[in-house]
Write a protein that binds this DNA or RNA. Structure first.
Lengths: 112, 112
DNA sequence: CCTATAGTTAAGCATATCATTAATTAAGGA
DNA sequence: TCCTTAATTAATGATATGCTTAACTATAGG
């Protein structure tokens, strides 16, 4: 498997509702796997795999305390994701004359 | 296939580097499929499929002019994606005392 | 009408994703 | 030591993704 870039891993991690829900809970406070898994109907291994995806994207960290894993959210990937999205929203809004430019190019093409 | 929510479709669409690159170009100006496909080494059908993903997420619109399709970017899905990410970044930062709260809970558990 | 251009659809294939159940690892406590 | 709890790993299966080539639709334009 080709190693994916951070941004792709982050967006892919956020593309699943269960994982977003996990992050929502972790954004309030750190928690154990048990606590995070509780509201979901899926199996423990399924949760474990979701956590692996989140961890690979750098969105969470797992620290061991005895047989418990404390899950902590990390915002760096969110910062990068946000930066990408904001840049493109802004870029689009900056080209408020995008339609005009496009029309000019269409006209130019017709003239050729 | 279960119908996915907009946010999931948006994040999934953004999870691919080729699609992000397409959006980057479209954020500058509207373009035809041919123009968008040009810098990529992948086949035309592959591009067409990427466009379908972007369209399903509402990130682009295709309008037909003769045999050309003009691709236009739409920012609404980006607005929603941004809102989700920002909310969670903020939430996490608000709970600056998250560690303290967690420690209290750990202590409480030990006392029981 | 014929041909070139623009683009999509269809079919097939390799790999990834998301779930399952069963087995395993690790620690706490009677 | 034995049992329970917490969590992960392994194996498997269904479905989704991302790509390919081949075939198709539609329009411009000589």
């Amino acid at each position: 498997m080709a190693a994916k870039d951070t941004l792709s891993l982050t967006f892919a991690a956020l593309a699943d509702p269960t994982r977003r829900s996990i992050l929502t809970r972790l954004s309030q406070r750190a928690a154990t796997v048990r606590e995070i898994a509780e509201p979901f109907e899926i199996s423990a291994p399924a949760i474990s795999q979701h956590l692996k995806v989140l961890e690979r994207a750098g969105l969470i960290e797992r620290t061991a305390n005895a047989q418990w894993r404390t899950l902590t959210m990390r915002t760096k990937p969110l910062d990068e994701a946000s930066a990408w999205v904001e840049k493109h929203r802004r870029e689009w809004n900056n080209s408020f004359d995008a339609l005009e430019v496009h029309l000019k190019r269409m006209i130019k093409r017709e003239e050729q």
